[in-house]
Computed example of a mutant assay.
Amino acid sequence: MISVDGRETGIEIKQFQNLEEILLRIMETDELEGRIVTDVFVNKESFSEIYPHQAEDIESDEIESVEVKSVPVMDMALSITHELGKVVRLMDHGARRVAELFRQADDAEALEVYQDLMDVTRDFLNMVGVLRSESTKRPNSAFDAAADDISNLFSEMLEVLENEDWILLADLLEYEFIPAMGRFKTVIAELQESFETTVKE
């Protein structure tokens, strides 16, 4: 039996050679249009690939059932916007920690945490960009202003980093980076509002 969100698809397992073929066939149906897959259960056990194309190695004669669970894209987007507020708080905490370490002359530890902070910031900005493209109401002004601020600040911080002026970097993090990231709270709030409206419709 193959089902999507509790509904039987009518697709027969024995038509396919392996799990990958089954999953690709499910993706071709209209069942998942505008939805994101959250879970796959094979023989009532949760399945996720440990290595690429692992599903290809699971022969169809080993499979009794495949169940796919999904959520609407907008529900997932709304859920992510709620998490982004926590990420801003984490970045705030991280920036303060890096500034403190630089001021204590613990440069090695500070640089390590700084690198993690920059990685998280890049991922955060990418995610906000993706959500903004999915949003029906594009919060242009707040996003553009916040993105310009952070982009200019990144250039300045990179220059300071190359000059190894750790105290100036600590100041930039504390007095400019934290407020700049804080401006994204408005962007996140606008995105939330947009997705909440869409979900209700």
Rank of each mutant, 00 (worst) to 15 (best):
L125A: 08
E59H: 14
D119K: 14
I80P: 10
I22A: 09
M27H: 10
A110N: 02
M27Q: 09
Y114M: 08
D149L: 09
S194D: 03
V71C: 10
D123E: 12
V120F: 04
V71A: 12
E162Q: 15
E162D: 15
E193F: 01
K86T: 13
Y114A: 00
L111M: 07
P72R: 13
D57S: 14
D123I: 08
A147S: 07
A147K: 09
L169S: 02
K200Y: 05
V113Y: 03
G129I: 00
G34Y: 01
L24N: 14
E83P: 04
M76N: 15
I50F: 11
R138T: 00
K86M: 10
H82T: 11
D148H: 14
L169I: 04
I58N: 02
L191A: 04
Y114F: 06
R122T: 12
D123T: 09
V87P: 05
N163C: 04
L161W: 06
K14T: 15
A146D: 05
F102Y: 14
K14E: 15
E162S: 14
E190N: 13
T186L: 11
F16R: 03
A145L: 14
M91F: 01
K44M: 11
L19T: 03
A95P: 04
D116P: 02
G182D: 14
D171T: 04
A142D: 12
F41H: 13
L191F: 08
K44A: 11
P72A: 03
Q17L: 10
S151A: 08
N18H: 11
F195L: 00
R183L: 05
E12G: 00
R183C: 01
E59N: 08
M118H: 00
I58F: 03
L168I: 14
E28V: 07
L168S: 12
Q115L: 14
E31L: 06
R7M: 11
E45G: 01
S3R: 05
D171E: 09
E109C: 03
G182C: 12
E196Y: 07
R35E: 00
K200T: 02
E45K: 12
N43G: 08
R35K: 14
E109V: 08
H53I: 11
L161G: 07
E59Y: 12
A55N: 01
A55S: 06
V68W: 03
A110E: 06
A146F: 08
D5K: 01
E134A: 07
S155G: 10
V187Q: 06
L19P: 06
M74D: 13
H53K: 09
E112K: 09
D144H: 06
T136G: 15
L172Q: 03
S48P: 10
I22R: 08
F47K: 07
I36M: 11
E162M: 13
V130K: 11
K44R: 15
N126K: 13
Q17G: 08
P139C: 07
E190F: 06
M157P: 02
E20V: 04
I50K: 15
N140C: 12
E21N: 06
K44H: 13
V68H: 01
D61I: 10
A77W: 13
R35L: 04
L90K: 09
D92Q: 09
G10E: 12
V37T: 02
V128L: 13
L158N: 13
F47H: 09
V4E: 01
R96G: 01
S46K: 13
V4M: 00
